[in-house]
Design a protein around this nucleic acid. Structure first.
Lengths: 171, 171
DNA sequence: CGCCATTCAATTGTGCGCAACTTAATTGTG
DNA sequence: CACAATTAAGTTGCGCACAATTGAATGGCG
């Protein structure tokens, strides 16, 4: 509200950029936490945290996966996944077993109970969607925007990195 | 509330909702972390983390504030802010002092060095904006969308709360 | 005035996210 | 075959987020 409208970028002064920056980074941060909060409440019934739910979604879709693949789907590394999977295992939702073929890799499988949980999870998305007040189309549009953003940011992070390793051709 | 029909939803089957849900929550989660990653790299020069930067932005704008007010601006509670502010204090960027007027409250003030840091921070937003590949207008549009989302989610979180304490007129 | 409810910060405990490092298995190369 | 390089998980350490609790200060009310 403060002073105004900047049509394009033209020569927006630094101070205004700083204010805009405050707004956009705050907005994304806040939205992410707000989302997290709603999921927290809804997922409490299932005994899952939000990240655990994401892992379960991937497993429900793919059946079973090594930790590495799970990490690629979710962009998470073993530092995050290992303890998380241990908790899911303790909860009786998954099993972790070293692969016989390649002893380095650990296969994550749904238990009976884990598979079962999917039925109860089916109503979660509707409750979330209802909470947003957004329709399917709007959600899809927002998702597309966010994915663009993520793609751009990931690319930028690489070029911006001090090490800046150029070779990043991931599988 | 079961069986209700939702705004844009025809009769999309549950399975598809689950898949869409996977996508939108994953997208937001990923975007948030990607943003965080870019800030991490850029803010390293300033010796700040992303949440610390948010706190500094608020302080640069308002000069000095009690912890409570800081928390309202950022939607963070003392559980998060107390240790964070201690670290900013240790870094010599802020001071914390119990208010003489009301001994319960702690006033957070910028030090000389903290005020000084703003000049170096002025170029951060431009680097971030460049990383996103978005123009000011796009950023603003996205921000507006995210704020809508946050508002809706916050409202929903309250009504969704298990305790659903009717008297939830906070503040 | 005395007491109780409220308010603000801080603390504790749990979980996520990420960097850096460790350990073990596999692969590639001579 | 032997040995270095690579790969997969796990571990450690730090910081953030949030719920729940604690403790001190304040304000309201009889």
């Amino acid at each position: 509200m403060a002073g105004a409208s900047y049509p394009g970028t033209m020569d927006t002064p630094d101070d205004d950029w700083l204010r805009l920056d405050q707004q956009i980074c705050f907005s994304l941060h806040a939205a992410s936490r707000a989302f997290n909060g709603v999921y927290r409440v809804i997922l409490k019934d299932l005994g899952l945290t939000y990240p655990q739910y994401l892992v379960m979604l991937v497993l429900w879709e793919h059946g079973e996966l090594p930790v590495k693949k799970l990490g690629e789907h979710l962009r998470l590394d073993s530092g995050t996944l290992s303890p998380l999977l241990k908790r899911l295992e303790a909860a009786g939702l998954v099993t972790r077993e070293r692969s016989a073929r390649d002893e380095r890799s650990v296969q994550v499988r749904l238990t009976e109970e884990g598979t079962e949980l999917r039925r109860r999870a089916l109503q979660v998305p509707r409750r979330i969607a209802a909470s947003t007040g957004f329709g399917a189309a709007e959600i899809r549009a927002l998702r597309a925007r966010l994915d663009d953003l993520t793609t751009a940011l990931d690319a930028a992070a690489l070029s911006e990195t001090p090490g800046g390793s150029p070779a990043d051709a991931r599988s």
